[in-house]
Design a protein around this nucleic acid. Structure first.
Lengths: 227, 227
DNA sequence: CTGTAGATTTCACTTATTGAAACGTCCTTT
DNA sequence: AAAGGACGTTTCAATAAGTGAAATCTACAG
């Protein structure tokens, strides 16, 4: 039985996702969006409510509950990658003035931002931690998939977002890509020379990120605590 | 059937909680801790894994997955209370040098820190966002329960944590307590006069927090977006 | 080499989930 | 005012789905 499942739980989790995506959603919409019957959705949402994963507001609509916040923040704190990366992101911002990101592959064929540092320019790119990013047509995506061009970094000009240029480099201890460091810049501000310079910086930081790690045996699981 | 349930989902969520609490936990421990049979725990954890809520590390142990981080951060961002409170916390830190917190009642009879601002003193109290706090014997607890003494703030000296004094005041638009603002101080640093001064500051900030809000009808649901 | 502990799979039992339908309510429409 | 529609909620019989004891396998410690 390679296939697991547990339909009920899967459905509940999908519902939870829908509620979190929406921020606030009435029962009927949640049911529609997840393709569940109203009664099933109600029952599952009630279970989620009873455990604090969602709550109802005065209007009766469902919202993400505090348990979600709690577990999420806890989990984020346990991700040692972000604490390792933070100084690197900071340096990148200091040296480039642009926003810098750490992202990792998610389970569903996308990527997700785990940490960011906002740039200092007044016109800056603003994404946010926890945001999903497609792997197609993005610099981060190319890197997370393992396409590392000779230069050591990937540049995507006006990819998913128009007028935005992204420069990304892989964090790949032992050849296995576990994360990407990237810098995102309004395209009008970028020059060929600047691209090379920043690309080199990003690649250098990405390389250095896990260089100190004594002996990452198989280059696996560096998303957890190093201990 | 006033009682909801859905045993399977509840169990899965308890497991998820256990994994997040532990940070990293092998199947057997998770099963023991939740009182589930190994096979059931395995099946549920697999479901959680398939949806990205947990993942396995190289050793096979379970850890919080990225989905948890993602939803948690999303949810936290949607909490308008924290954006409203942040300036207040900042001011408190500026005026007192001590760490300041925003907390709300959780679903399980505890409280949870939703936002914090670290103090500037070299010896400071460090808790963290997402942390649970008991309601018994804490200043925050007293406030969240609705016990507002005449002074407008509660002081608890050496409560749960020894050598720590906490001063908390309720955020209660329309009489209903929805949150608490608090400052936490190493006890040796506090004086009677300082307590009064800080208490007044905390109470003032807590009062002012939702004063601007045009017309919070029944004083409900201010944890969500004000729209 | 033997014994214990964990992880994983199998499988028969039945419990617990399911969704259509019915109900009450609150709107908007005619 | 009455009719229509949408939503939240409850009921209930059918059965799909989850359960846990036991068996299997591996890894490791004695």
């Amino acid at each position: 039985m390679a296939e697991s499942s547990t339909r009920t739980v899967e459905r509940a989790l999908v519902l939870l996702g829908a509620v979190c995506d929406a921020g606030s959603i009435p029962l009927a919409d949640a049911a529609r969006e997840t393709g569940l019957s109203a009664s099933t959705a109600l029952r599952l949402l009630r279970t989620l409510e009873g455990t604090g994963f969602v709550r109802r507001d005065a209007a009766g609509a469902y919202r993400p509950g505090l348990r979600v916040v709690q577990l999420g923040v806890q989990a984020l704190a346990h991700e040692s990658l972000v604490s390792l990366a933070e100084p690197a992101l900071e340096r990148l911002v200091a040296l480039t003035g642009e926003s810098a990101y750490l992202s990792v592959p998610s389970h569903d064929g996308e990527g997700i931002y785990l940490a960011m540092r906002e740039g200092t320019h007044s016109v800056r790119h603003a994404s946010w931690v926890g945001r999903s990013i497609p792997l197609d047509g993005t610099a981060v995506g190319a890197v997370l998939r393992g396409e590392e061009p000779a230069a050591g970094f990937v540049v995507v000009r006006n990819g998913i977002e128009a007028d935005i240029t992204a420069i990304a480099a892989p964090v790949s201890p032992g050849g296995q890509v576990v994360a990407a460091i990237s810098v995102v810049i309004p395209s009008y501000r970028i020059t060929p020379a600047g691209t090379r310079r920043i690309g080199a910086l990003v690649a250098a930081e990405a390389d250095a990120l896990l260089a100190h790690i004594p002996s990452a045996p198989a280059g696996q699981d560096l998303t957890g605590e190093p201990a």
